[in-house]
Amino acid sequence: MLEIINLHARVGDKQILNGISLQVRVGEVHAIMGPNGSGKSTLAQVLAGHPAYEVTAGQATFQGRDLLDLEPEERARAGLFLAFQYPVEIPGVSNAYFLRAALNEIRKARGQEELDPIDFMDLAEEKLKLVEWGPDILSRAVNAGFSGGEKKRNEILQMAVLEPTLAILDETDSGLDIDALRIVAEGVNRLRRPDNATVVVTHYQRLLNYIVPDFVHVIAAGRIVRSGGRELALELEAKGYEWLTEAVPA
């Protein structure tokens, strides 16, 4: 579904990604871990098409299409979804309006009919159950004045509504309390289907008890320095990153 080969990216003069290769197949869950500043969010943002990052080498294909050749909105319409580490506030624009606008853009791209506000509300109510939220959240402005945890949960609500084929969750677990973590993780699990895939970026093994990964990758200094099964996360929990990063040439 997603194939990344030797991806290099920089922002301004600062080289951040130094040759990432990664393959994600349908049905899989991948976890990406690694020290602060190692390039995890950059990888996620590059895949989503953030204009601040310049890809200097390498390729990425998504369902057979050259991902890097698509505009960010085309990537979203093709089924890519990024849950932001720092979701953006959009004052005055209600969650309901925003979600419906996004869903209808994606539905149009899929050749489906647009939903009117009434049909959308029916759908939204179903999706709210997935994140155990009441309907009030729909009338609040997108992320405006949301707590850190609420913003993260709102990302998962968006994911539930948009039903992406590939979801990249960038530290969605950071800032969630214990109950919210369980709710969000269960929500993500229930959104799994044999024809989609999930990449979770996290610092905590705890999340991986809920969302069990098929593969764990460690990024350091813009490279994947180790890949393994879920036991790698446990090993990292015990030993930290030093034993892996020491081997990386500066």
């Binding site: 989503a48 204009p51 505009e71 960010p72 990537r75 979203a76 979701p87 506030e89 959009i90 925003f98």
Partner: peptide, 12 residues
Amino acid sequence: QASFYLKSRGVA
């Protein structure tokens, strides 16, 4: 930032 956020949801 908000503009990119919307694009990442398919809205442009």
